[in-house]
Amino acid sequence: MFDIPAITWSLTAVLLLSGSYQVRQAIRSQQRTDRVNKSLHALMNILMAAMLWNLVPSTMLAQIAVLAGAALWFVIQAVARPEFKTLCAGSQGRLKCAYHSLTMAGAALMAAMMGQMTTTAGHGIVPAGGMSMPHAHHAMTAATPSTAAATVDHSPDLAILLTAFFGAAAVVFLILLLRSRVATTTLGHAAGPRRSVRAEHGLEALGAAVMALMFATMAA
């Protein structure tokens, strides 16, 4: 599906718009921790958009390090003691932070898998630059040298697992979005706060769907 430029451009637009929204939310937030969290989500969206086009492959290790650090940051919030109220509070908040840690870890893993694809360029398998994610993947999988096969044999199964996970997450957030819309219709006086919740669920659903699609391409 990623061989169709319109789809790649559409996913890029979704990621960049989502990242812009997160930047806006970070600027408007009054809480430092929330600003950091929103900023990390914005950065993740921008890096994933870059992955679609295989941009700046020379910074791949730095991208993985930043995303892995962000995943650890959300894990720390998820397991923090209750007295640290600026971090994740309550079971719902901890569950949200745990999921966000998985999204950051998934993005880091995606960058690592892309790094495997571009690393084979030194063996003449994949062009070093100027190739988008889907084309790089298809060029890699079409190659026959044993060095490439040994490197990525484990990737398809893992990509399938992550595709299923983020696909299921997208469905869950879509259900939550629909439920919040029904609640807003029923309780019109709570429309303001509910609108923010709907936006959050919508962004989470879009983000999970994009990650599912990107991992599905790697599994193909």
Rank of each mutant, 00 (worst) to 15 (best):
G130R: 02
R81H: 07
W73A: 13
P57V: 03
M114L: 15
T163N: 02
R32Y: 00
L72S: 15
Q92Y: 11
A70D: 08
F74H: 07
I7L: 09
L15S: 01
M114W: 08
L102V: 12
M104H: 07
R35C: 03
L178A: 05
A111W: 13
A183K: 05
L47G: 14
W53T: 02
A209D: 01
T185R: 15
H137I: 12
A149T: 01
T59M: 15
A169I: 00
Y21W: 07
H137V: 15
I125H: 09
T118R: 08
R35S: 01
T103N: 15
G130V: 03
Q77I: 12
G90T: 10
R195M: 14
A62D: 06
E200P: 04
W9A: 05
M133T: 10
L67Y: 15
C88M: 15
M114P: 13
M44L: 15
G19S: 05
S58R: 04
R24L: 09
I175A: 03
Q31V: 07
T186F: 09
Q63K: 08
T184W: 02
A62S: 11
R28I: 01
T8E: 01
V23N: 03
R198H: 03
G130W: 00
D34N: 07
L203N: 06
M60I: 09
S180A: 06
F166Y: 09
T217Y: 05
W73Y: 14
I125G: 02
G130E: 04
L109H: 08
K38H: 09
M113V: 05
A98Y: 07
T118M: 11
V79D: 13
T119K: 01
A107R: 06
R179K: 00
L161Y: 06
F165C: 05
A80D: 11
A148E: 08
H154P: 02
R195S: 12
V79S: 10
F215L: 13
G106N: 06
Q92G: 06
R35H: 01
G106P: 01
A142F: 12
A142Y: 15
I4P: 04
A128K: 08
F215N: 02
G207A: 03
F166L: 01
T141G: 10
G19V: 02
A78I: 10
L87A: 03
T185P: 10
G129Q: 08
M113W: 14
V210W: 01
M104R: 06
A78F: 07
